[in-house]
Design a protein around this nucleic acid. Structure first.
Length: 508
RNA sequence: GAUCCGGUAGCUCAGCCGGUAGAGCACCUGACUUUUAAUCAGGUGGCCGAGAGUUCGAAUCUCUCCCGGAUCACCA
């Protein structure tokens, strides 16, 4: 795509031999204004402005003011010009700061001469000072006594009514999107609030926030392909982390009992409406707890976030009503598969599962080991049926190399995922802490990796060494923050909750 | 990586059974001292994503490529 918000080469035409009708591009027009300010000795890029009120504060001051009423409140506010309406010897302008939008009224009565004010363009950032009043139509307005150009904008803004719609331009030039589409700023303010609330909740529960390395020698903690990088001085290959898990568990070994990290992880996989190559993951670990404790914590925290955001436990997400009332639904993976695919994974033969998968077009099912078959049947038959918040509980051991064997059911591990609107939102287990068992599991992973499985874990000897010192019984939980924010902002795509989602570079 | 949809003025979009490139907003000129998607009159502005082909003639038809979106696949 030609990035159309960039200035095109300036075009000066004189089509009808009339010297008055020389057309100048908007960008050129503004460059000329910049030069004009300089020739007048005015810096069109000021250093600061003595603001007395935010726009929201100013609006609040005049809140009780009726139509046509004047006040004695003097305010000095700053913001970007969003609209101009010339009216002969007067002019209305709307300016926006981070807190809101307010109307300005400039007239020859107070400014004497509107020449300099009229020179301002939509997009410019100004500071204005004056008294609050309310127009006949009831809009709170500042009657300008003085003003200053703070920053000259060299581009025109997108259309005032439709805003910026082109998705590619919105993602690539998010700053324009933020200027043009007020809803976008609200989404990211909500994202920040959600993360702040998560932190507050966890601190309240006695968790300590920690930070662990992003650069790993051995990647693990999830099934994913990593990004590879290189340390020049040490001449070492390094990986960007795909999970936080293995370092956080080392800290549990070290004696911390309740810790969490909110960090960026990187997965070298495809991009979609729910996948971005880098995303924000919350992981927490609690000593002396198991996955039932993690389930209670997950429920409590997410329920609290929904209520804090919407004032009730229900959310409309993409037209569907989601009910986060406590407790969330629970279903074992075995029962879920029994309901949707009609087979009991405790007794069904591998051949029957292969047949189920081939029927859905998964041709390479015959080569899958049993655990992967079960997982695939679940993905194919069950996951897309889970709209309401549902804990899917107890997973086959083969696909969960870091989770502890189920205390009652030998073929399973103690693990759950929380599925909402068909998306995996959380994943948790009772952590495997037997170093011998863990080593055997990772060796099995290593074997399938050697056999060509690119997502299988590699052996991490230091992690096994850490477990060998003794990790207390531990519950662990991971929550995809971006997806959580999607649910809480009704965002259809993960790109809408990331300031700068990953896009291909434009090669020119 | 596969399939489908899209890319036309600064922005939002028409035009697509081939025949001189359009509207609204923005911008420029003029009028207007409480407007608010202000209004009224006039005007400027295009490598129609890029390249090749078919044709007397291509925004329009064909092919290749680039970028985006949706659905898959992989994954959280």
């Amino acid at each position: 795509m030609y990035l159309s918000l960039q200035p095109k080469p300036d075009i000066i035409r004189n089509m009808n031999h009339n010297t008055e009708s020389v057309a100048v591009s908007e960008h050129e027009n503004r460059l000329q204004k910049r030069a004009l300010y300089e020739s007048e000795g005015t810096n069109p890029f000021a250093y600061a402005y003595n603001r007395t009120h935010t726009i929201a504060d100013a609006l609040a001051l005049a809140a009780g003011c009726g139509p046509g009423e004047k006040t004695t409140h003097q305010v000095a506010v700053c913001g970007r010009i969003k609209a101009k309406r010339g009216h002969g010897k007067a002019m209305f302008v709307n300016i926006t700061d981070q807190t809101g939008t307010i109307q300005l009224y400039a007239s020859v009565n107070d400014l004497g001469d509107l020449t300099h004010f009229e020179r301002l363009d939509v997009g410019d950032i100004v500071g204005v000072q004056g008294a609050l009043f309310t127009t006949r139509r009831g809009e709170i307005t500042i009657n300008i006594q003085s003003f200053a150009l703070l920053t000259k904008s060299m581009h025109s803004l997108p259309e005032k009514y439709h805003g910026l719609q082109n998705k590619e331009a919105r993602y690539r030039q998010r700053y324009v999107d933020l200027i043009a589409n007020p809803d976008v700023m609200a989404v990211f303010q909500k994202r920040s609030a959600v993360i702040q609330q998560v932190r507050a909740y966890l601190h309240d529960q006695g968790f300590m926030e920690v930070e662990t390395p992003v650069l790993h020698h051995i990647y693990g903690g999830a099934s994913a392909r990593p990004f590879t990088t290189h340390h020049n001085e040490l001449n070492q290959s390094l990986y960007l982390r795909i999970a936080l898990e293995l370092h956080l568990k080392r800290l549990i070994v070290g004696g911390f009992e309740k810790i969490f990290e909110i960090g960026r992880v990187f997965r070298n996989e495809g991009v979609s409406f729910k996948h971005n190559p880098e995303y924000t993951l919350l992981e927490l670990y609690q000593a002396y707890a198991d996955y039932t404790d993690m389930m209670a914590l997950t429920e409590s925290m997410i329920h609290g976030l929904v209520v804090a955001t919407y004032g009730s436990p229900t959310v409309t997400y993409q037209g569907q009503l989601l009910d986060f009332s406590l407790p969330f639904k629970r279903v074992s993976m075995r029962d879920a598969i029994l309901n949707e695919a009609g087979v009991d994974i405790d007794t069904v033969s591998d051949a029957d599962m292969v047949a189920l998968l081939v029927a859905k077009g998964i041709e390479d099912a015959a080569s899958m080991p049993r655990g992967e078959l079960i997982n695939e049947v679940y993905d194919t038959y069950v996951e897309h049926t889970l709209i309401q918040p549902t804990f899917v509980v107890d997973y086959p051991v083969e696909t969960s190399p870091l989770a502890k064997n189920h205390r009652d059911k030998p073929a399973y591990v103690e693990r759950f995922e929380l599925i909402v609107a068909k998306m995996e939102l959380a994943n948790a287990f009772t952590e495997l802490n037997d170093p011998v068992e863990q080593k055997a599991r990772l060796q099995a992973q290593q074997q399938s990796r050697d056999a060509g499985s690119v997502n299988a874990h590699g052996m991490d000897d230091d992690f096994i060494e850490a477990l060998s010192y003794g990790m207390p019984p531990t519950g662990g939980l991971g929550i995809g923050i971006d997806r959580l924010v999607m649910l809480l902002t009704d965002a259809a795509s993960i790109r809408d909750v990331l300031f700068f989602p990953h896009l291909k570079q434009i090669v020119t």
